[in-house]
């Protein structure tokens, strides 16, 4: 999953690395009647419509990685739970100039979801207004959560951010299996 607030570069990142034209569709992720402030049109619609990016990378002939770029207010959203159940890892993108737009996504993965996540700060125009460790402090990220930077327009840069993310998930999975002989992986 690729998450984060509006405008942090989710669509750009998924497009950079997907082998198919990313599907960014309005009606794909509709859910019946859930109030979502940022998206509600105030017209009493009974369906919440969310644009969602969908991309695909074929890694081997029998191994496909799907990318779901999902906007930032995941809480209360059952479809996010479904996405998490099938997810290998989550990457939260952030814009260093507007870190707060990615707080809800970080909150969600930290507290409400059982899925390893990493954070990547999108290097818009190669300008990082703060050192990465200052950003970690501002995000109140636990030490074990990887924090990196990314150029969302670059395929290899996005690949490296995904490597950080999946690598973290792998380490957590190994820890979980090694740390508990009864196989209590959650």
């Amino acid at each position: 999953m690729v998450a984060g607030g509006l405008g942090v570069g989710k669509t750009t990142a998924v497009q950079s690395i997907s082998e198919i034209a990313t599907i960014n569709t309005d009606n794909w992720m509709t859910e019946p009647g859930r109030p979502l402030d940022a998206l509600a049109d105030g017209q009493g619609k009974t369906t919440t419509t969310v644009a969602m990016d969908f991309g695909r990378i074929t890694l081997e002939s029998d191994l496909v990685l799907y990318l779901f770029g999902t906007p930032g207010q995941p809480r209360f959203w059952t479809i996010w739970e479904d996405l998490c159940r099938g997810a290998s890892a989550a990457l939260v993108l952030a814009d260093a100039r507007r870190l707060e737009t990615s707080f809800p996504a970080i909150d969600y993965f930290e507290r409400d979801a059982d899925i390893p996540f990493a954070v990547a700060v999108n290097r818009f125009d190669d300008v990082l207004p703060h050192p990465v460790e200052r950003i970690r402090a501002a995000l109140e990220l636990p030490e074990h959560v990887p924090l990196t930077t990314v150029d969302a327009r670059s395929r290899s840069s996005v690949a490296r951010a995904l490597i950080t993310t999946v690598g973290h998930s792998l380490r957590q999975a190994v820890l979980a299996s090694g740390g508990d002989a009864s196989g209590g992986g959650r």
Partner: peptide
């Protein structure tokens, strides 16, 4: 069945190997 664990260590290791070719 959808029963395959998306965080199986073997699967994650293969995903990593695949991504490294793109980096």
């Amino acid at each position: 069945s959808g029963a395959q664990d998306p965080r199986d260590t073997v699967v994650l290791g293969r995903v990593l190997d695949g991504l490294r070719k793109l980096a």
